[in-house]
């Protein structure tokens, strides 16, 4: 089905495009996560079509200052350095209220966020507070006749859709690896503006008693990686061939729910409908049958490679390169050959 984006908005929204900055901590200092740079690249495209600027929002203390120069390389005009007296920025309702305050001050036309579970909560509350329309798990976003149009895949990556957001404020949650991050030719010097937000009691009804950050694995984050090597029940608990190949490729390690349920690897490594949704350039699945729950989280990957001893495995239905074989011989041999070819 194709139909034109009818009823173009009479007044094309020209407010800034606002990007929520996600960070992680590297050597004790807050740093932007790679998907943020992709969001900024998309935001620039969106803003350029209406001649509006890109603004960024930092809720983590110290992030705005630490990231200002890098944000300049991505063409950001202004960074809202949000200060939240007495509120924990780890609570998503708090972040939602902070973002709402910024969006109102800025009279923003669109908000872009990385598509994570936490940010979905932020977006949902932001939408309830502002009346914005939301699309999650987007793979692209453009502006057509003043309307924000979002691409996304549904039903485990088997359908592609384009969705128009018909409200004055559009909120889009974008999947990692949607576009390559690109810097601007002439870097800007973003204005860092302190922005104090007093959150309402409504955002503070739940109390965060304890938060334990997971230790960094030293590998790229699963949700953000360009390459993912995943293992399932077929590893029988021995993830070493999976890890070896991931490391040779500079990729992340993922798993099926069977592998995480068995305790062979942490729950945060689970790919699928109830785990992490990934869309890397390259996915290699070893000892994975390709159950629909798993496929839902990886079917949108660029190139799919499967190694499985059973030629009837459903994963072969979606594999670009399928190998009927034993992962314990195929994976080490591939790792070895890649090392050799690299010299």
């Amino acid at each position: 089905m194709t139909e034109p984006v009818t009823d173009p908005a009479t007044d094309v929204p020209t407010g800034p495009v606002v990007v929520l900055l996600d960070h992680h901590t590297v050597d004790g200092a807050p740093r932007l996560r790679p998907p943020v740079l992709e969001l900024l690249t998309l935001a620039r495209g969106l803003a350029a079509s209406t001649g509006s600027p890109v603004h960024a929002v930092a809720v983590e203390p110290g992030l705005a200052q630490a990231a200002a120069e890098e944000l300049g390389r991505y063409g950001v005009a202004r960074v809202h350095d949000v200060v939240l007296p007495g509120a924990d920025p780890h609570l998503t309702p708090v972040v939602a209220e902070a973002l709402t305050a910024v969006v109102r001050t800025d009279d923003a036309s669109a908000v872009l966020l990385a598509s994570t579970f936490e940010n979905k909560e932020v977006a949902a509350r932001l939408a309830v507070l502002t009346g914005a329309g939301v699309v999650s798990d987007a793979t692209g976003v453009t502006q057509e006749d003043g309307v924000v149009v979002v691409s996304k895949t549904v039903f485990a990556g088997t359908w592609t859709t384009r969705c128009a957001i018909t409200t004055p404020l559009a909120v889009v949650l974008v999947k990692a690896n949607a576009v390559p991050a690109e810097t601007v030719a002439d870097p800007t010097t973003p204005q860092v503006e302190p922005h104090e937000v007093t959150v309402s009691p409504s955002a503070l009804r739940a109390t965060l008693v304890r938060r334990t950050e997971r230790a960094a694995s030293g590998r790229p984050e699963l949700a953000e990686a360009q390459t993912v090597v995943a293992g399932g029940r077929g590893t029988d608990g021995d993830f070493s061939p999976v890890e070896e190949l991931a490391d040779v490729l500079g990729g992340a390690v993922g798993a099926t729910r069977v592998a995480t349920d068995e305790g062979w690897i942490g729950h945060e490594s689970q790919i699928g409908q109830t785990g992490v949704t990934i869309s890397p350039q390259l996915y290699i699945g070893a000892g994975i049958s390709g159950a629909v729950h798993h496929r839902g989280g990886m079917q949108a990957s660029g190139t799919i490679v499967a190694v499985n001893t059973d030629p009837e495995s459903p994963i072969f239905e979606i594999a670009d390169f399928g190998i009927v074989g034993d992962l314990f011989t195929v994976l080490p041999q591939a790792a070895e050959e890649i090392r050799r070819l690299r010299g």
């Binding site: 089905m1 194709t2 139909e3 034109p4 984006v5 939408a127 009346g131 914005a132 329309g133 939301v134 699309v135 149009v149 895949t153 990556g157 088997t158 359908w159 592609t160 859709t161 384009r162 969705c163 128009a164 957001i165 018909t166 409200t167 799919i304 190694v307 030629p311 072969f316 979606i318 594999a319 670009d320 390169f321 399928g322 190998i323 009927v324 074989g325 034993d326 011989t329 195929v330 041999q333």
Partner: peptide, 25 residues
Amino acid sequence: RTRIVEAAPRPPREDRVLITDDGTA
């Protein structure tokens, strides 16, 4: 607040390869 303007099944993947390990996979 949103409206689907286009929806299509994703085209099947092309140039797919399936091999059986003969020792060189």
